[in-house]
Simulated assay, not measured.
Amino acid sequence: MKIALVGVGKIARDQHIPSIAASPDWKLAATCSRQGSVEGIPAYTDLDEMMAAHPDISVISMCMPPVPRFDFARRAIAAGRHVMLEKPPGATLSECHALEDMARKAGVSLFATWHSREANRVAAARDWLADKTITRCHITWREDVRKWHPGQDWVFDPGGMGVFDPGINALSVMTKILPAPVHLLGAELSFPANRQTPIAAQLQFTDNVSADFDWRQEGPQTWDVEVWTEAGKLHLTHGGEHMTIDGVEAGADPVVPGEYPGLYAQMAQLVRAKEIDMDLSPLRHVADALMLGKRIETDAFDW
Rank of each mutant, 00 (worst) to 15 (best):
S19Q: 12
P179Q: 09
V145G: 01
M291I: 02
P158R: 07
H235W: 09
G240M: 05
S172Y: 05
P24Q: 01
P282Y: 02
V163S: 05
D127W: 04
L270T: 00
S37E: 13
R104K: 14
D46K: 11
D246E: 15
E249M: 10
E226P: 00
R195H: 09
H238D: 07
E230S: 05
K132R: 15
M291T: 09
K147R: 13
T229F: 10
P198E: 10
M50P: 01
K176D: 09
L129F: 15
A12E: 01
L129Y: 14
R284C: 00
V271C: 07
V255R: 02
A250M: 13
D214T: 09
L189M: 14
A187H: 03
Q35T: 14
C32G: 00
R74N: 06
H242G: 00
R13L: 12
W303A: 04
G293H: 04
L280G: 11
A193R: 11
G251I: 07
T113Q: 15
R195N: 03
I17G: 09
R81A: 05
D46M: 06
A79M: 09
I134Y: 02
I276N: 08
W148A: 05
M51T: 06
G90Q: 06
A125E: 11
I177S: 03
G262E: 11
M62S: 07
M278Q: 09
V209A: 00
A112N: 03
A252H: 09
F164T: 08
N169H: 15
A273G: 02
I139V: 12
Q15S: 14
D48S: 07
I177K: 00
L263N: 14
A91V: 15
H97N: 05
A98G: 03
T45I: 07
T206N: 13
T135D: 10
M278C: 13
R69C: 08
G107M: 01
A300M: 12
F70S: 01
E143F: 05
L99C: 02
Q204T: 15
I77H: 10
D207T: 04
W303N: 05
P198M: 04
Y44M: 12
T135N: 13
P166S: 08
T45G: 12
E86P: 01
I3N: 02
L280E: 09
C96M: 07
L234E: 04
D279A: 07
I296V: 14
R69W: 02
H235N: 04
D157W: 10
